[in-house]
Write a protein that binds this DNA or RNA. Structure first.
Lengths: 275, 275
DNA sequence: CACTATTTGTCCGTATGTATG
DNA sequence: TCATACATACGGACAAATAGT
């Protein structure tokens, strides 16, 4: 059996520091604040700080030099994250050469929770088809999807269909064409269930995306609650100003992000033609 | 001085359950799983579950009936969150009748972290103007903003200017017109510093938005790292399918979200004209 | 009206993480 | 780094309340 409780505070400090390193806020070679300073900042004791630093050191993320301080070793983890355009309802992945897979965790018809029922404009007794899926890249899970579809629509495809084709595609095949969608983005902590499904710890931050897709008549077809691992998946979007003089007119462009721009660091040519 | 450490596991369970109630997954009147079942699901002891439930009960979110179970009291907290369109670079708030305020936490010129330096395409020795701001609605903080502007641009306005006008506006006044922008959305845990600035606990989930704004020549003007409280702020966006038959063509629409659609729950009229 | 199963309420001792010096 | 004191978490046991048979 599990012995007892893990060092939670130390772990939290460890995660926060690790994040600062990964995000580049603490670059390679930088010296961390002293243990005492860290202890004060995080409102914990020095012992806890030491444990966190030892954890980092054991992963070779920092180097402890006695009498001097603790220094950052690697600039960032370079854990290549998957980029996806938030403007794309199919949430297609932009990075190439990656194999994405789907694992169907559950599939049944249920009385949806109030929030879903309202979003799908279902009658109080109407049921919905609930499917829980996990998406994987290179065999590693990065998103947890809970989808609700009105029963009258979900009837048209089976459990096996869902394990293969994207849900929206199945819905379209059933004769319901998506015309518009609404998305809300938030953040949540990983619950034990999704933590296991996504192969992460409990209490880690996840990007939460709630989406409702409507057909041409404006009737809701699908409700999706997606959770993404931020270390493996990044939602991104590009904006372009449309109205020349108007201040507040920025339109999202669905165009694919060109990674070279940031990578090559070549001086930008003046007088670039924007189209 | 502070006595000791807070119950972390209990608190986490408390937060997760609270979220399930707020999200409507657990509706009013619903009976929670038994304490033993919860203990198993969350992989903690029953005592810890009891602490979490007691916390919820103390807030009157649940009602404990001995011998029977624990029941949800309120349907959801109805803590009205601020809606903002993610497509809007100015991050204008959509909810009306709300007063938003800005508090300037710090303002100085620094050697930017590597990640920022790269994004702003600065030379290794070039400095940037770093400003940390907190945005408030009705006096309550909801976002934490760390902005970097190349020194040559930032020179044109002062600390006082920043406390009053939006940063992008100041940049434009300085003669630099924004033309495009790139945003990435992620999720992080609240660090002690931002936790205090946002008046929340440490280790809570936050929406993280990283944005780089470019001028007409494609040169970066501003780097922003924004953190949002998900309970007070919701990023949203609307999408519309553009290409008639093409599957993968959904364009984000910058139009303001019409709240009535979800609120009134009126049956959708057939043959609605979409424009 | 039992009888029983389940669930909350309360207590214990123990192990371990954490704060403090 | 070590030692002490305390808070948290664990696992178990048992009583009391509830609901169904």
């Amino acid at each position: 059996m599990r012995a007892a409780s893990e060092p939670l505070k130390a772990r939290r400090v460890y995660l926060l520091l690790k994040d600062k390193i990964a995000s580049g806020e603490l670059a390679a070679g930088d010296r961390l604040p002293g243990e005492f300073a860290l202890a004060q900042a995080h409102n914990v004791s020095r012992v806890t700080i030491r444990q966190a630093l030892d954890l980092l050191a054991s992963e070779d993320l920092v180097q402890k030099r006695s009498g001097s301080g603790t220094y950052v070793r690697r600039p960032s983890q370079k854990v290549r994250t998957v980029l996806a355009d938030v403007a794309n309802v199919f949430a297609h992945l932009i990075e190439m050469g990656r194999t994405t897979d789907v694992r169907l965790l559950s599939f049944d018809y249920v009385n949806p929770p109030e929030q879903v029922r309202e979003a799908l404009e279902l009658a109080p007794d109407e049921r919905s088809q609930r499917s829980v899926r996990v998406r994987l890249v290179d065999g590693v899970p990065f998103s947890h999807l809970v989808a609700h579809v009105p029963e009258r629509i979900g009837r048209n495809f089976s459990r096996d269909d869902l394990a293969k084709a994207p849900l929206l595609e199945l819905i379209e095949r059933a004769g319901h064409k998506g015309a518009s969608a609404r998305q809300e983005i938030s953040a949540v902590l990983s619950s034990p269930e999704v933590a296991e499904a996504l192969d992460i710890g409990v209490g880690l931050p996840l990007v939460a995306l709630r989406r409702v897709v409507y057909d041409q008549a404006g009737r809701p077809m699908e409700h999706l609650q997606a959770l993404y691992r931020p270390d493996r998946y990044t939602l991104q979007m590009n904006l372009a100003r449309t109205g020349d003089e108007g201040h507040r007119h920025w339109s999202p462009t669905a165009e694919v992000y060109r990674r070279e721009r940031l990578r090559r660091r070549q001086p930008v040519r003046k007088k670039v033609k924007l189209k």
